[in-house]
Computed example of a mutant assay.
Amino acid sequence: PLVLFKNTDAEYCLTPALTRRRETVPQYDLSPQERKMNLEDCFAVTQNVTGKTVIVVDDIFTTGATMEEAAQTLKNAGAVEVYGLAFCGSIENYGQIQ
């Protein structure tokens, strides 16, 4: 994995906290609503996130469906705050998901 930062006191560290519990179809040909449905309940939390602030890192942000589903899964597992960081993206469809 790519390490973005590391605190020598181990207060901040990169730890994979999500995994896919099922396969999904590629998102690129799906509408915003289809993307949301495609990702519904696809993530599982693999680390204790109770009371923690989590940053979700993804390669691309298009409609926000992946970030939204990841954040909801983490919050359901007890994360206090969830932030998203994407390396590139398009916001042309953002806000169309209900």
Score class of each variant (00 low, 15 high):
75 K>P: 00
6 K>Q: 10
84 G>C: 07
34 E>K: 12
69 E>S: 15
90 S>N: 15
47 Q>W: 11
10 A>M: 07
56 V>T: 05
51 G>F: 00
50 T>Q: 14
73 T>M: 12
7 N>E: 04
65 A>M: 07
47 Q>N: 13
9 D>S: 14
71 A>G: 06
51 G>A: 08
28 Y>A: 15
65 A>W: 02
34 E>P: 01
59 D>P: 00
39 L>R: 12
75 K>W: 02
60 I>F: 11
79 A>D: 03
13 C>L: 15
91 I>G: 13
26 P>W: 12
59 D>G: 00
32 P>K: 10
81 E>W: 06
50 T>D: 05
36 K>Y: 05
73 T>L: 08
77 A>H: 02
20 R>K: 15
96 Q>E: 10
38 N>L: 03
19 T>I: 12
94 Y>Q: 03
57 V>Y: 09
66 T>V: 08
57 V>S: 13
48 N>L: 09
44 A>Q: 14
29 D>A: 11
49 V>E: 08
40 E>K: 15
60 I>M: 09
74 L>M: 10
3 V>K: 11
36 K>L: 11
43 F>Q: 04
3 V>C: 08
75 K>E: 12
22 R>T: 09
86 A>I: 01
64 G>N: 11
8 T>S: 06
3 V>Y: 14
66 T>C: 04
56 V>S: 03
20 R>C: 08
1 P>K: 11
6 K>C: 10
35 R>G: 09
49 V>C: 05
17 A>Q: 07
19 T>F: 06
92 E>A: 15
56 V>G: 02
3 V>E: 13
89 G>V: 05
66 T>K: 07
90 S>F: 03
11 E>H: 09
84 G>D: 07
52 K>V: 01
54 V>E: 03
35 R>M: 01
84 G>E: 01
11 E>C: 14
86 A>R: 00
17 A>Y: 13
46 T>G: 05
57 V>K: 14
86 A>W: 02
50 T>S: 12
74 L>N: 10
89 G>H: 03
35 R>V: 10
56 V>L: 14
37 M>Q: 14
57 V>D: 05
44 A>V: 09
87 F>R: 04
58 D>Q: 00
89 G>R: 01
76 N>A: 15
56 V>W: 04
71 A>R: 03
15 T>S: 14
25 V>E: 08
11 E>A: 11
58 D>G: 00
43 F>M: 09
76 N>T: 06
32 P>Q: 07
70 A>P: 06
92 E>C: 06
26 P>F: 12
12 Y>C: 13
21 R>L: 10
4 L>D: 04
18 L>G: 14
97 I>M: 07
2 L>T: 06
65 A>E: 02
33 Q>V: 09
82 V>R: 04
16 P>N: 11
51 G>D: 08
66 T>F: 01
49 V>A: 04
7 N>Q: 03
52 K>S: 11
61 F>L: 07
98 Q>E: 11
66 T>Q: 07
35 R>W: 06
95 G>M: 01
55 I>L: 13
52 K>R: 13
57 V>H: 13
93 N>I: 00
21 R>S: 15
74 L>I: 10
93 N>L: 05
61 F>M: 08
1 P>F: 12
44 A>W: 13
20 R>Q: 15
64 G>H: 00
34 E>Q: 15
48 N>T: 10
51 G>H: 02
12 Y>P: 00
5 F>E: 10
41 D>G: 14
58 D>T: 01
24 T>Y: 01
71 A>Y: 06
44 A>F: 05
11 E>F: 09
75 K>Y: 01
8 T>Y: 09
96 Q>W: 02
76 N>Y: 13
61 F>G: 02
